[in-house]
């Protein structure tokens, strides 16, 4: 009797499933030189986890877009692929791309989520669009869960350089939920045997008076794997003395392992390595199978960028270096003796 009373008191009107729009994500697919960025493929995986439709968007120059569309339409998890080509999208400036996204997401838009990799380009574009639509954005998520009944999405994301994990909920009061995805937390979506998704071209929204003009882009040339997605990373710190020693010591080891090269902020600030190689809170976040930290002490900010690696190996002269607290395999030794010996023995 009492029980029945309580259940009556606790009864709250339950929204029927029909009231919340079923999730429909728009995934911003980035590409370079005709190839899809693998971080975008991780974003697609995250979008699929919302449990609804997923539409991809490819924006770029008329020369690039067709070949990217060819690859993207075979991706698993896409229901529709939108593409938009214009000379003004040759370099994606937020000032020129935002109007296109705003138009796509305006009043009658079917989209409930906007998803991208946490890449430098998307980080520049997405918040600008979100603000124009008066909605907040969630950065660098590592997991998500969508509740179709209430139309709310719950995300986890690292804060304080990964030293705490915050769980945030975006309720149905936020009509379009923007988020960027930490690519190392989601597997890359594959190109499958699924039916090709429907492909639709969009008209560009030409901006005649953009306040910003692109002058040039200079990419760091390297024949080694890209740091962000490499399965093995060899990383050097301040102990590498100078740029020449950094290269002559680390590159042979990276090549022997087929690894990408990374650097601590100390090494970058001292000019030993290019800024694009920086691993950490203010650089790249990597989670390879193997992370080798050579002459890196292991500051909080550096650990934020690599502590999800599968196997961490550290070589450092200082037995008390904090890196040894997280390293699966530590060796207290002079890296200038260790590395050549390693290279020699790996080649055997």
């Amino acid at each position: 009797m009492l029980k029945a009373r309580i259940s009556l008191l606790n009864r709250v009107p339950v929204r029927s499933y029909a009231t919340a729009a079923s999730p429909h994500a728009l995934v911003f697919l980035e590409h370079r030189q005709g190839n899809l960025d693998s971080a975008s493929l991780s974003a697609l995986t995250a979008a699929s986890q919302l449990g609804g439709q997923v539409t991809g968007l490819v924006v770029g120059s008329p020369e690039e877009v067709p070949s990217v569309v060819e690859k993207a339409k075979r991706l698993n998890g896409l229901t529709l692929l939108l593409h938009c080509a214009s000379p003004q999208y040759t370099t994606l400036l937020p000032e020129t791309v935002s109007p296109l996204l705003e138009k796509l997401l305006s009043q009658s838009s079917p989209f409930t989520h906007v998803v991208s990799a946490h890449s430098s380009s998307a980080k520049s574009i997405l918040p600008r669009v979100a603000a124009k639509l008066d909605v907040p954005a969630v950065s660098d998520i590592t997991s998500l869960e969508h509740d179709a009944a209430s139309g709310s999405t719950t995300f986890t994301r690292p804060i304080y350089a990964g030293n705490a994990i915050s769980t945030v909920r975006a309720s149905s009061s936020i009509p379009i939920k923007f988020f960027t995805v930490r690519s190392t937390a989601f597997a890359a979506a594959g190109a499958g045997d699924a039916a090709e998704s429907e492909v639709k071209a969009l008209d560009s929204v030409e901006v005649s008076d953009a306040p910003t003009e692109h002058i040039n882009t200079s990419l760091t040339k390297s024949d080694r794997p890209d740091l962000g997605v490499a399965s093995r990373v060899v990383s050097g710190g301040r102990a590498l003395k100078n740029a020449e020693t950094f290269q002559s010591t680390l590159y042979p080891l990276a090549d022997a392992l087929g690894a990408a090269v990374g650097a601590s902020r100390a090494a970058v600030d001292a000019g030993y390595a290019d800024n694009s190689l920086q691993v950490g809170q203010t650089g790249k976040v990597v989670a390879p199978e193997l992370y080798m930290a050579l002459g890196i002490s292991g500051a909080i900010q550096h650990l934020a960028g690599m502590k999800d690696s599968k196997l961490i190996v550290a070589v450092n002269k200082d037995p008390d270096a904090p890196i040894f607290q997280v390293a699966d395999v530590g060796l207290v030794a002079d890296l200038f003796e260790v590395v050549p010996e390693l290279v020699e023995k790996l080649k055997q």
């Binding site: 040894f324 530590g330 030794a333 260790v338 023995k345």
Partner: peptide, 23 residues
């Protein structure tokens, strides 16, 4: 506009100890 449900410690990573040499 976003609701913080909770803040937690990240999973702790424990070092696996040291080895004596390159081999």
């Amino acid at each position: 506009r976003l609701e913080t449900i909770e803040v937690t410690e990240p999973p702790k990573r424990v070092g696996g100890g040291k080895v004596a040499n390159v081999d």
